[in-house]
Design a protein around this nucleic acid. Structure first.
Lengths: 214, 214, 214, 214
DNA sequence: AATGAATGAGAGTTCATTCAT
DNA sequence: AATGAATGAACTCTCATTCAT
């Protein structure tokens, strides 16, 4: 009995490891090639399993992609929450979000943005009731709340509608635009974040002095 | 003779009208569905012609899409140039670019961004020597030059690298993020632009006072 | 009235000239590219008329090709008849046929053979009742008759079935095989014919002792 | 383990059988209809599989056809070599080649010739570096060598250029011309070969006085 | 009579998905 | 559970033919 349960647990573990590997590989290929240029065949080959095996884990290509984004957004949310928790001011919290995104998470965020902006896949994100829609919304609400809190505390300019501030903030996150900058090597992620924060907060802060850029 | 010439002119006109219609319809479908979900069959049906007719105007699906983007970027560049010419300060010029984009051009720009960010199609834009690459580059350079000029004139903060300022500006243009804001109806394009400019320039201006938001 | 008739005649003449030009051009393209790689579009362009005009002369691509072959075989037959008429012995007559083929007619014959051997087009030649079938048959019969006459006159070996001799003769005509030889430049058409006749008649002539056919 | 290996072997065997079937069917359809009139759809239907299955075995229609020809030429070469090895005189060797071709190989050779003479497909054979070009060349060289050897040994007339003799020999092989003869039923393959050899060698053998070539 | 834009059937090819092993 | 051969719908693109002008 115990052996059986142990076996089951072992198998379950192996199963999860494989699933994780599939997600990982798919993410890489997706980032490199985009959704339609990525074939199940290639994923299977790279993972080292047969095509059919992919379908034992995910009922369709679309589901596989949703699983990746879902996982990524969740991780992102968690990271964001942790980053926020360590800060006291709302500005610092938003800066922490920026920083979290660009340091280490940028690869995933880049994929996320690429797919989010890809009309082919927009339905995945915008169909109400879809898991991704809800998760994304949750993240957007977090930002809104920080902005509103900042307005109340006097940190942010309350003459600007929160929704605009939110959109501008989300725009700044879009890593595609900064790809070239980072790839050029003239600047690293940490510096980039500081500059972006500088630009963003210099604008929305009610007073003028800013943190010095080292 | 005159009849013949007139006929030729008429036919040519009809031809151009149809070509315009194809471009228009494709643009719409592309925006709604993305590149891979858009089939030549659907375009033809929507335009009201046979599949083969599309190929009388464009040698391939890719060429059709490039034609759309090429036209759009060119129009955009032209509009941007006109908008710039009317202004005297570099800040006003960049604001004019923003305004031009959001007032009436947003639909096309949205498509442009969606495709530009789509990994599947990146090659269209990033293959050196491609028409689109050059046009896009031209636009990016315009922005850089305005920023540099503004630094020289003392309008903009010269402690921030131009490339970052450029990327942040281009990010702000990304209309996808503002789609929701505009669609919500709480705010119109003109107001949106003013707020965005406010955010952007509040950050990069060397001094602190800003234009009041009405 | 007379003017009208004259006009009609002139037009008719122009029409025939154009038809001749279409045939000529098609023949060239056909030889260079083969049937399926030749498009009506290309023919029209080369002739310098619109696609539709081709169809005023020939009801279909197939009919156009049949017209070419039909004309060629008829000319060939005529040339063969003339060549035969000048000779007295049956051997000399067959040699004259060979010679006629290779000197000046080889281009057309080459096309003819290429098409005849092309399975895609075989139906054109082998459908009983088709014009081409009949014409081809007529030519084959001419050869047979010369061979039979030669057997009767003692010129040719009557232990070999005429049909085999006929096939072997037709094989020798196949210009495709000799293309390389002629193109190599080591040998010209006239010499080639003499060698081929040498080979062919050396074999079928009665004056030569050979292995007995069991 | 053994089961697994056995399974693999079984599957491999089935795979090869199917591939063989595809080749066989395609060969038949090709002979009957020619390259362009043969569609993958028809092949698939005749084989009794879906269209996609064909592409599991051959990456393109052209590759499929090349595979057929390649296989056929290789088998042909092998058969020719075996036939040659059993003979002592060069004449006997060439006769053996003829015989080998007409007894049982004629169907394939017929296809080969039909395709070889088809301008549409000439590129398959004549593109330098193509597998088919090399194989075909190998065969042609075999014949040349036998002819040259025969000249040296005194069997063949050395006043006739080898290249002409080679072309004439290859012409004789062209089974299209003899199709009618064989199909008429008056004569069988074996007899036909003997007659053809009779014709061919009667001409090139030295023991026979002939007209001098000027 | 001449045009050439329009047609649409049909081609080769791809790939997400299924299912017998 | 894992496989990968098989499927077939859907795709892009071609071109002989038609017909309004």
């Amino acid at each position: 009995m115990q052996t059986k349960r142990a076996t089951r647990t072992l198998k379950e573990k192996q199963r999860q490891e494989r699933e994780e590997l599939i997600l990982q590989v798919t993410e890489d290929v997706l980032r490199a090639k985009g959704y339609h240029e990525t074939s199940i065949d290639e994923i299977a080959t790279r993972v080292g399993v047969a095509k059919g095996t992919i379908y034992l884990h995910f009922p369709s290509k679309e589901d596989l992609v949703v699983a990746i984004f879902s996982r990524d957004i969740q991780r992102f949310l968690q990271g964001v929450d942790e980053a926020i928790a360590l800060q006291t001011s709302n500005r610092a919290r938003l800066e922490a979000v920026l920083y979290f995104l660009y340091s280490g998470f940028s690869k995933r965020a880049q994929l996320l943005y690429a797919m989010y902006n890809n009309a082919d896949l927009r339905k995945l994100f915008t169909e109400k009731g879809s898991k991704l829609y809800d998760l994304w919304e949750e993240f957007a609400v977090r930002i809104s709340m920080l902005l509103d809190a900042g307005k109340v505390s006097g940190e942010f300019d309350d003459t600007i509608p929160t929704c605009v501030m939110q959109s501008a903030f989300l725009s700044l996150l879009s890593p595609r635009s900064y790809e070239r900058v980072l790839l050029s090597g003239q600047i690293n992620a940490e510096e980039l974040v500081q500059y972006l924060a500088h630009i963003y907060f210099g604008g929305i802060a009610t007073h003028c002095e800013r943190r010095a850029i080292p």
